[in-house]
Design a binder for these strands. Structure first.
Lengths: 216, 216
DNA sequence: GTCTATATCGGGATAGAC
DNA sequence: GTCTATCCCGATATAGAC
């Protein structure tokens, strides 16, 4: 692995674990056993590193979105898709964790982030509208918009919410809790045979045992 | 107004507008036309200021919660109560805006905050359970817990979500959008005559015209 | 490509005069 | 209570040798 790549991998890891603002360029070079000067040879400042990491994030996320548009997915696949998005977010959690700082210190990244989010939500909206026209979802257009907003809220903020409550966010359990929240909100509008619905719920609930959601 | 009080008021204003981490003690003294040394005479560092502001926040929030327990409120009052909580949060938005930094730089505040949140959610849960036993809400215990979690998510994170999407959060409009999201998620479980429900929805929707939620 | 050494800058903190 | 002056420290940034 080239030094440049090693820097990105290590930075991502440190950012995710300690928060971007708590990691200085010296910390990164220390972790890699290289000198600060060397780090600067590859990346002229933390900003460039953050930008490079965001580009990676965007690439991977776009691939997930792309796959949804191409394959004709049904509403059960949909929840799996939601999980994939949550999971990608988890890999780059530092982007969500410190977004206030992020937008203040790296406005270019913040702009690209919000642009990407809006696109992502457009994509979600299209999907839900398709389900609506197919009859697997019963809702008005306004309700669809509400669903999109709620999903966006869970995607981008649920980790912060759990962290604020003092819960550990280092494992992936909370992803399932987020998924359960989305399922809870959408369920009343989903038009599926009871049996299949329960199957879906159980699949999600088995992963979020901790909170007694299993009885859902 | 005493200097100490002026410092608190000005700090709150600056924190809310620029974010706590972007406001240095010198900024505060500059805004007040006093010297940094004088500021330190009253508050030995920003930490003490943040702690004092959180104490204020907690006091005011507790009063709102208290009022709910004492008066026997019905489910329509409930949404007004939710709005009051959202509004109090708005007055101290800096606590929510930069929570990652907050918990890293002021662990004592973070601990008190999470403790307060958990208490608040207990209070919410009790309220919802009361509505359930009265029949105005039809839901299982697990669904009640989900409602509480969703409300907590909106309370603490919706401003961050809108900010992340690049929207302006300086006015109070987004409070109504948050309220609309909660209403959207709870509505299927609420057991009220259609007429009264529509009244509720409209009352909320008239305040969030911007997003076409009026048609809800 | 990588190192050491150093310059710069901003924020937090404090001593001592008034 | 309030001010001025100063110190300390951590982080960014860069120059120049190897």
């Amino acid at each position: 692995m080239k030094t440049a790549e090693k820097i990105l991998v290590t930075s991502l890891d440190l950012f995710n674990r300690r928060g971007e603002s708590n990691v200085s360029s010296v910390d990164i070079s220390l972790e890699l056993d290289i000198s600060p000067g060397n780090l600067y040879y590859h990346f002229k400042g933390k900003e460039v590193i953050v930008e490079a990491l965001f580009a990676l994030y965007k690439d991977q996320m776009d691939k997930v979105l792309q796959s949804t548009i191409q394959k004709e997915i049904n509403i059960e696949d949909f929840f799996y898709f939601l999980f994939l998005v949550l999971e990608k977010g988890y890999l780059f959690q530092f982007l969500y964790h410190n977004q206030a700082n992020l937008s203040e210190n790296y406005p270019s990244v913040a702009k690209a982030f919000s642009k990407h989010l809006i696109l992502q939500e457009k994509c979600l909206e299209k999907l839900l509208e398709k389900f609506m026209s197919e009859g697997s979802i019963k809702a008005s257009n306004v309700q669809i918009k509400q669903m999109v907003e709620l999903i966006g809220l869970v995607f981008t903020q649920s980790a912060n919410y759990y962290a604020l409550k003092g819960q550990d966010v280092s494992d992936e359990t909370h992803l399932y809790k987020g998924l359960a929240t989305i399922l809870f909100a959408l369920l009343p509008y989903i038009n599926l045979p009871q049996g299949e619905l329960h199957q879906l719920q159980e699949a999600i609930a088995t992963h979020s045992l901790a909170d007694g959601l299993t009885q859902a």
